[in-house]
Design a protein around this nucleic acid. Structure first.
Length: 432
DNA sequence: AAAAAAT
């Protein structure tokens, strides 16, 4: 009798798990496709359930994480399964993707082995630094663990082999370190992470370098691809280059965050945009703001013009020296500047909590002049992080750019309302 | 067009 009772409880608990998983599968929020469709879907509601090494759990809690976020609930069990499985995962901006893959790397690293075992690629210098900080914080309780930054300007002695167990870097430098310079033995990498994976494997993105690096890795290396966006053609390519992946995919209507209010301001030319921007400047500097321009030149011009008007702004673009870039982003993080004028270099991943307004001074378009929906989503995702409210303002300066904005609205099936510059209540509401 | 290399 007792035995039957216990067995029933076990059966009930398994059933609960399945019901919970089915909920995940059918609420039409995400689509979860498993490499082995017959194995039960499993999601976790606490970090304890993952049976992490104590020093890793300590790191997770020290960072202030209490419970797994939605993407972490689903992705962590898949990433930590034995034997290791590959994963392609999509989740909205600011929902905890970085912590998810950092935890996966730390769970597999063996700090006693003094060579690189985990490799993570970022599309930009600033994002590599930011993700590196997360790795350092979460790995803080592994006494022997060290992290190497494979980024521009980090020069090592010739013939050296690096002893750091985890490497974070940008594609060009990582490729050099793996091939020509031989600082890293790629055959010993166990976990390979592509952050902002869609741009890392896209033809117009960093495809060449990322794929060349991937080909040097061992066949059984675990591959983890994360992004908030995967354009249809990129999804197909991702599934071609990643063997037997688990997949977590967002439905189109779930891609946008409702916590970010989107508006546009109608102007006739660039000078009008500049004047409109000056009009709302007081409102956007209640907290912090990021202003995106299409070219480095426009960003430089806009930063100079705003300075001339007496506004203190920071400028960040890829033409600057890396030392200067690091200093600018650090000052912005500290709130020493309230406004950052930048290019697409900052469109993805950059996480500055105080940013409550994103301004598209120029709408995001690709090299053919078509709307760049993915970049749009990433840019506005610099605000509204981890459930906070945010505001995105698009500056339209012609019929042509209005058409671009309309196509972006259609793509996401999301209305972007007109904002009158003399009506700034909306901006102030966001900031209280 | 921007980003990405010790070229």
């Amino acid at each position: 009798m007792q035995w039957l009772f216990r067995e029933d409880r076990a059966a009930q608990s398994l059933l609960n798990k399945l019901i919970r998983s089915n909920l995940v599968d059918t609420t039409n929020q995400v689509e979860v496709l498993q490499r082995d469709p017959t194995s039960p879907l499993y999601s976790v509601k606490s970090f304890e359930e993952l049976r992490l090494k104590p020093q890793l759990l300590q790191g997770v809690y020290a960072m202030g994480f209490n419970r797994p976020s939605k993407i972490q609930e689903n992705a962590l069990p898949m990433m930590l399964a034995e034997p290791p499985q590959n994963l392609i995962a999509q989740s909205q901006s600011g929902t905890g993707k970085t912590a998810a893959f950092v935890l996966a790397m730390l769970s597999r690293v063996e700090p006693g082995n003094k060579y690189p075992q985990c490799l993570c690629l970022s599309p930009t210098y600033e994002l590599a630094l930011q993700t590196g900080k997360v790795i350092e914080q979460m790995g803080n309780f592994y006494p022997e663990l060290k992290l190497a930054y494979a980024v521009r300007g980090n020069k090592l002695e010739r013939g050296q082999k690096i002893s750091e167990q985890i490497v974070i870097g940008t594609p060009g430098t990582v490729l050099d370190w793996c091939s020509k310079l031989k600082f890293i033995d790629p055959k010993k990498i166990k976990v390979f992470v592509l952050d902002e994976a869609d741009v890392m494997i896209a033809t117009q993105g960093h495809q060449d370098q990322s794929i060349r690096i991937q080909r040097m890795l061992p066949r059984d290396c675990q591959m983890l691809l994360f992004s908030a966006t995967f354009e249809d053609s990129v999804w197909k390519f991702a599934q071609k280059v990643v063997p037997d992946p688990n997949i977590i995919k967002l439905k189109r209507e779930e891609e946008t965050l409702d916590t970010i209010k989107q508006y546009y301001v109608l102007c006739n030319n660039r000078d009008e945009k500049f004047r409109a921007l000056c009009n709302i400047y007081g409102a956007i500097t209640i907290a912090q703001a990021m202003i995106f321009c299409h070219t480095r030149k426009t960003a430089g011009w806009l930063a100079a013009e705003l300075s001339r008007e007496g506004h203190q702004v920071a400028l960040l673009s890829g033409e600057m020296m890396v030392e200067q870039r690091a200093a600018v982003i650090e000052r912005f993080r500290e709130g020493k500047e309230k406004v950052l004028v930048t290019t697409n270099v900052c469109a993805r991943g950059i996480d500055v909590e105080q940013v409550s307004v994103v301004i598209n001074f120029d709408l995001p378009v690709d090299k053919d002049g078509n709307p760049d929906n993915e970049t749009y989503l990433h840019r506005i995702g610099r605000t509204g992080r981890f459930g906070k409210r945010g505001l995105a303002i698009n500056m339209v300066d012609s019929k042509h750019s209005m058409n671009i904005l309309n196509r972006i609205q259609e793509h996401f099936n999301k209305k972007i309302n007109k904002l009158d510059t003399d009506d700034l209540d909306e901006i102030e509401k966001i900031n209280n």
